[in-house]
Amino acid sequence: MNPAAVDPTARAEQATERQTQNRILEMQLLHESLARAHMQDRLHEAENQRLVSRVARARKLRQRAERASMRARKALAVALM
Rank of each mutant, 00 (worst) to 15 (best):
residue 2 N to T: 00
residue 2 N to I: 00
residue 3 P to I: 00
residue 3 P to Y: 00
residue 4 A to N: 05
residue 4 A to Y: 07
residue 4 A to G: 04
residue 5 A to M: 07
residue 5 A to P: 02
residue 6 V to H: 03
residue 6 V to A: 08
residue 6 V to G: 01
residue 8 P to Y: 02
residue 8 P to F: 01
residue 9 T to P: 00
residue 9 T to N: 10
residue 10 A to Q: 05
residue 10 A to R: 09
residue 11 R to D: 13
residue 12 A to N: 00
residue 12 A to C: 00
residue 12 A to M: 01
residue 12 A to K: 01
residue 12 A to H: 01
residue 12 A to I: 01
residue 13 E to V: 08
residue 13 E to D: 13
residue 13 E to G: 07
residue 13 E to K: 13
residue 15 A to L: 14
residue 16 T to N: 10
residue 17 E to N: 12
residue 18 R to K: 14
residue 18 R to G: 08
residue 18 R to S: 13
residue 19 Q to K: 11
residue 20 T to P: 02
residue 20 T to R: 12
residue 20 T to H: 09
residue 20 T to G: 06
residue 20 T to Q: 09
residue 21 Q to S: 12
residue 21 Q to T: 11
residue 21 Q to C: 05
residue 22 N to K: 14
residue 22 N to D: 13
residue 23 R to V: 11
residue 23 R to N: 15
residue 23 R to K: 10
residue 25 L to K: 11
residue 25 L to C: 09
residue 25 L to R: 15
residue 26 E to Q: 15
residue 27 M to W: 08
residue 27 M to A: 15
residue 27 M to Y: 11
residue 28 Q to R: 10
residue 29 L to P: 01
residue 30 L to N: 07
residue 30 L to W: 04
residue 30 L to P: 01
residue 31 H to V: 10
residue 31 H to S: 15
residue 31 H to W: 09
residue 32 E to Y: 05
residue 32 E to A: 04
residue 32 E to I: 03
residue 32 E to M: 07
residue 32 E to W: 07
residue 33 S to M: 10
residue 34 L to C: 07
residue 34 L to Q: 14
residue 37 A to D: 09
residue 37 A to Y: 03
residue 38 H to N: 13
residue 39 M to Q: 12
residue 40 Q to N: 09
residue 41 D to T: 12
residue 42 R to N: 04
residue 43 L to V: 06
residue 44 H to S: 13
residue 44 H to W: 10
residue 44 H to N: 14
residue 45 E to Q: 14
residue 45 E to A: 12
residue 46 A to F: 00
residue 47 E to P: 01
residue 47 E to F: 05
residue 48 N to F: 04
residue 48 N to T: 06
residue 49 Q to A: 04
residue 49 Q to R: 03
residue 49 Q to P: 00
residue 50 R to V: 03
residue 50 R to I: 02
residue 52 V to D: 06
residue 52 V to W: 04
residue 53 S to K: 08
residue 54 R to L: 13
residue 54 R to G: 06
residue 54 R to E: 14
residue 54 R to D: 14
residue 55 V to E: 07
residue 55 V to R: 10
residue 55 V to N: 03
residue 57 R to S: 08
residue 57 R to N: 08
residue 57 R to Y: 05
residue 58 A to I: 02
residue 58 A to H: 03
residue 59 R to Y: 02
residue 59 R to A: 05
residue 60 K to W: 10
residue 61 L to C: 02
residue 62 R to P: 00
residue 62 R to C: 07
residue 63 Q to K: 04
residue 63 Q to E: 10
residue 65 A to M: 06
residue 65 A to W: 04
residue 66 E to H: 03
residue 66 E to V: 03
residue 67 R to N: 02
residue 69 S to A: 15
residue 70 M to K: 11
residue 70 M to V: 12
residue 70 M to T: 06
residue 71 R to L: 07
residue 71 R to E: 05
residue 71 R to T: 01
residue 71 R to W: 01
residue 72 A to N: 07
residue 73 R to S: 13
residue 73 R to Q: 14
residue 75 A to W: 02
residue 75 A to Q: 06
residue 75 A to T: 01
residue 76 L to N: 10
residue 76 L to H: 13
residue 76 L to I: 10
residue 77 A to K: 04
residue 77 A to P: 00
residue 79 A to F: 04
residue 79 A to C: 02
residue 79 A to K: 06
residue 79 A to W: 05
residue 79 A to L: 06
residue 80 L to S: 09
residue 80 L to W: 07
residue 80 L to T: 08
residue 81 M to D: 12
